[in-house]
């Protein structure tokens, strides 16, 4: 007979992700990495295009 679960009992998934959960987590991680990489490149591009060669001429 199955033991009744209480709120403190971790679900079986807590001991390891199912293959589907692992696969989706991997996909999310890659998507976040790609988005972050793209954002870094965009900010770099904006910096180069807006400041360009004048970067040393800025007054601080």
């Amino acid at each position: 007979m199955a033991e009744p679960q209480n709120a403190n009992t971790p679900s079986p998934s807590a001991y390891g992700l199912s293959p589907e959960e692992k696969k989706k987590r991997g996909q999310r991680n890659i998507a976040i990495a790609l988005a972050l990489g793209a954002f870094i490149i965009l900010v770099f591009l904006v910096t180069i295009l807006r400041i360009g060669g004048a970067v040393a001429e800025r007054s601080f």
């Binding site: 589907e20 996909q27 890659i30």
Partner: peptide
């Protein structure tokens, strides 16, 4: 439930 731990949402769902 810890939703982040067991999520089966893919990048397409966020999109």
């Amino acid at each position: 439930m810890d939703s982040t731990q067991f999520s089966v949402a893919g990048p397409r769902d966020y999109f």
